[in-house]
């Protein structure tokens, strides 16, 4: 099996995003899976500094009910 190596990069440093807003659900959704779990850094490729901020934002967003703690797809 031949794997084509892809460059992983931090989305935030690449787009020059310094602060992550917990109200920006559209952005935060990209870093959670379908279940609503936060994706690991080895998958998203985001740098450690921004990942910490991202995790904080996602957890704040969960507290104020903008994002789910768990999303099983059943309403």
């Amino acid at each position: 099996m031949a794997f084509k190596s892809r460059r992983k990069y931090c989305y935030f440093t690449e787009n020059n995003i310094k602060e992550i807003d917990y109200k920006d659900v559209k952005l935060l959704r990209r870093f959670t899976n379908d279940q609503g779990k936060i994706m690991p850094r080895r998958v998203t490729g985001s740098c450690a500094k921004m990942h910490r901020k991202l995790v904080r934002a996602i957890k704040q967003s969960r507290m104020i009910c903008l994002m789910p703690f768990t999303d099983t797809g059943v309403e």
């Binding site: 099996m1 892809r6 952005l27 998958v43 998203t44």
Partner: peptide
């Protein structure tokens, strides 16, 4: 601009996931 960027990066992320799973 951001919108376009996100579209591109989403694809890239998905691809990255796929490769992870294969690995």
């Amino acid at each position: 601009q951001e919108q376009e960027d996100t579209a591109e990066t989403e694809e890239a992320d998905q691809d990255a996931e796929n490769t992870e799973k294969e690995a």
